[in-house]
Simulated scan of single mutants.
Amino acid sequence: MLNIYGIKNCDTMKKAFRWLDEHQVEYQFHDYKKEGVNAELAAAWVAKLGWEAVINKRGTTWRKLTDDVKDNMSESNAVTLMLEQPSLIKRPLIVKNEEVYLGFNAEHYAQTLI
């Protein structure tokens, strides 16, 4: 079974849920808005993938940050911000075994999640 992290009402999350359901892939969903983010997991994701990959720079949450915060981003700052504002985390974030996958890509899902 895999774990999928994100926000339930996100359009990209809905695509991922639909794909997983259609392909009968069992998953456990963790909603950032309701359950928050675990500091250990956030730090592990950033350590494994880099903060540049994990933080969604396209979203409104990123755009609302001050230039000073954006310009001084580091791994530790990213983890702190992820805990305070989980909407900054790129969605969906999928963990299967020890691997972490970001975003929705049906072709990539077919190769790695089934």
Rank of each mutant, 00 (worst) to 15 (best):
M1Y: 12
L2H: 13
N3Y: 14
I4T: 06
Y5E: 00
Y5I: 00
G6W: 05
G6S: 08
N9F: 10
D11P: 10
T12E: 11
A16F: 12
R18K: 15
H23K: 12
H23I: 03
Q24H: 07
Q24K: 08
V25Y: 07
V25H: 10
V25E: 02
E26V: 09
Y27A: 11
Y27K: 12
F29Q: 09
F29M: 10
D31L: 03
Y32C: 10
Y32D: 02
K33Y: 01
K33C: 02
E35T: 06
V37K: 09
A39H: 05
E40M: 05
L41M: 06
A43C: 03
A44L: 13
A44M: 04
K48V: 03
K48D: 14
G50T: 03
G50S: 08
A53P: 04
A53F: 02
V54I: 15
I55Y: 05
I55P: 03
K57T: 15
K57F: 09
G59M: 04
T60N: 13
W62D: 00
R63K: 14
L65K: 08
T66D: 15
V69S: 09
M73A: 14
S74W: 04
S76G: 05
A78P: 08
M82C: 03
M82Y: 04
L83K: 01
L83D: 00
E84V: 06
E84M: 09
E84F: 04
Q85T: 14
P86W: 03
S87E: 00
I89N: 08
I89Q: 10
K90M: 03
K90F: 01
R91K: 11
V95G: 08
K96Q: 13
N97K: 15
N97T: 11
L102D: 00
G103L: 07
F104G: 00
N105D: 14
H108F: 14
H108R: 14
H108Q: 11
H108N: 07
Y109L: 07
Q111N: 11
Q111P: 01
T112W: 07
